[in-house]
Design a protein around this nucleic acid. Structure first.
Length: 494
RNA sequence: GCCCCCAUCGUCUAGCGGUCCAGGACGGAGCCCUCUCAAGGCUCAAACAGGGGUUCGAGUCCCCUUGGGGGCACCA
């Protein structure tokens, strides 16, 4: 690689499914590497598989990247100097290189029908032989092959893998890897539909787009020798290769499966980025979580995207598979929520209240935020903690008003004393209400828990709430008195 | 079956031959704080897969075993 060239890193997903943790992490590392080294981050859509194409998948990818804050410099929706950035729009390029490979003797036309290939495969499997192409068309006379192609015979183009010797390639995380060429296969580069396979398309695009670092999943390790041989056959510069490990299911036993994904959702988690967003996770938390799955930092593991850029170094990447740990996601999400400025958090939770049907006063919301900030794991936790602020009246279950150790009648009596005390105050604030109420607790020979608990349920309608006095301060005196009055009535009716 | 990769607390990891009776984080346990729930503080339990080498010395290098993972498509 020529060090004087700018670093260019690409995220190249295929629009065949949903954006999940694995793709997000790859994109994140791509982004971090590009930003860290002052280069460009490119989005390229690998849509050459028309059978598996999923409408809307590209949009989810783009929205996912935007939500995470992983902004790219070039991509299908924003263009760039090396476009187009969708492989189906670059078909001529692959055709040209495939022909070039054939001309140079590094690839050959193959007319083998799929059903024959399948039979060969079964035979090899049965005989416990390595499964690969048997080489039938490899030694066809080139002129004869060209004639058949011109005649319109259905064909593919295969790479002519050397039969002897070995292939060596370097992965940045694992060092040099060696393959015996006799174990390698004559992979298809150009399908009979005229579209390239990943092998040709990705390599050609990486070359055309001047990609300097390839970060991809370890599932590409097995075709790694094919890719380097292809690149070398064409004399292209070799990028730095980085093969990331896969994610394992939470137990660490086996990879993430459909079944596991469903199980996660059942527990209130998800491996899909869009779901995570809807579950109330914030990009800061998600990013911090996934960046550490495969990247080790000695200390200070709470980071913003900017801090990740400053600290990122591919030498710290871990090639070992990593098990997904959702409780760590909760931790990072809560931590980053707490770090948000009040107005920012207010802006982010406002939609949750509105979706619940409340009309939200921004001034009140801004005063609520400090009360619930350290209680939120996900954004939607704001509802159980603070939804009651926006209700005109609350309706506690009568039995929840009765403190431990007291009868309903005793509770009613306590409530009346509390009412009298609050009614005597010209205004009810944290400062004005707490001292006399504590004195009352003392005088009644009860615990703060008993009295404040009753008041909490009376005022908020629930047993768990933000701090009582701070919460009451946000309510009008009339509201508080009316709710305590209501509680007394409820208790008297028990 | 064949090829390739990986291996430190339950999990994510630090460690790049001596500073490691192995450090941090999540989770767990306990204590403190406390009006509930949290947050926060303190403490504790918890790991170098096994076996051979190399070396004065190995978690750190090599080999084997075991275990885990990926791949073996006209999918990416």
């Amino acid at each position: 690689m020529n060090q004087s060239n700018p670093v260019r890193v690409r995220f190249a997903p295929s629009p065949t499914g949903r954006m999940h943790l694995g793709s997000a992490r790859t994109a994140l590392y791509d982004y971090l590497l590009a930003r860290r080294l002052g280069g460009q981050f490119i989005l390229r859509i690998e849509d050459t598989d028309r059978k598996r194409f999923v409408p809307g998948a590209e949009q989810e990818l783009i929205e996912g990247l935007r939500w995470l804050g992983l902004h790219y410099d070039e991509g299908p929706d924003i263009g760039g100097p090396y476009g187009p950035y969708r492989q189906t729009e670059r078909q001529e390029i692959y055709l040209r290189w495939a022909n070039e490979l054939v001309e140079r003797g590094h690839a050959f036309y193959c007319f083998c029908p799929p059903d024959r290939l399948e039979k060969v495969r079964q035979e090899q499997l049965k005989n416990k032989q390595p499964v690969r192409y048997d080489g039938t068309c490899r030694h066809l006379d080139p002129d004869e092959a060209r004639r058949r192609v011109r005649a319109g015979e259905r064909h593919v183009i295969r790479f002519k893998m050397p039969y002897e010797g070995e292939t060596r390639a370097v992965d940045a995380l694992r060092g040099e890897i060696v393959w015996q060429n006799r174990d390698l296969d004559d992979a298809i580069l150009l399908k009979s539909d005229g579209l390239p396979t990943y092998h040709l398309a990705a390599m050609a695009d990486d070359y055309e787009m001047k990609i300097t670092h390839v970060i991809r999943g370890s599932e590409w390790l097995s075709t790694f020798p094919l890719h380097v041989n292809l690149i070398r056959a064409l004399g292209w510069p070799e990028p730095v290769w980085i093969h990331l490990s896969v994610f394992l299911k939470p137990s660490g036993k086996g990879k993430m499966s459909k079944r596991e994904a469903a199980a996660a959702l059942n527990d209130g988690y998800s491996i899909f980025i869009k779901d995570l967003k809807e579950l109330g996770y914030i990009p800061e938390g998600v990013l911090n979580w996934i960046v550490l799955m495969g990247w080790g930092v000695a200390e200070d593991d709470v980071m913003t995207l900017e801090e990740m850029v400053q600290r990122f170094d591919i030498r710290n990447l871990n090639p070992a598979p990593a098990a997904i740990n959702f409780s760590k996601l909760d931790h990072f999400n809560g931590t980053h929520i707490r770090r948000l400025p009040a107005d920012d958090l207010a802006r982010r939770i406002k939609p949750y209240f509105e979706r619940a049907g409340y009309s939200v006063d921004d001034t009140l919301l801004l005063r609520i935020v400090p009360l619930i900030r350290e209680r939120l794991v996900t954004l939607d936790d704001c509802l159980p903690f603070a939804g009651w602020f926006f209700k005109d009246n609350v309706t506690p279950a009568p039995e929840t008003l009765v403190p431990k150790g007291l009868t309903p009648a005793e509770a009613a009596s306590v409530a009346r004393r509390v009412y009298d005390l609050l009614a005597a105050l010209p205004e009810i604030t944290h400062a004005s209400a707490e001292p006399p109420l504590r004195a009352l607790v003392e005088a009644l020979g009860l615990t703060p828990n008993q009295v404040f608990g009753l008041l909490r349920v009376a005022v908020t309608g629930q047993a768990v709430s933000p701090p009582l006095f701070e919460s009451m301060e946000l309510l009008s005196r009339e509201t508080i008195l009316a709710r305590v009055q209501n509680a007394i009535a409820l208790l008297e009716r028990m």
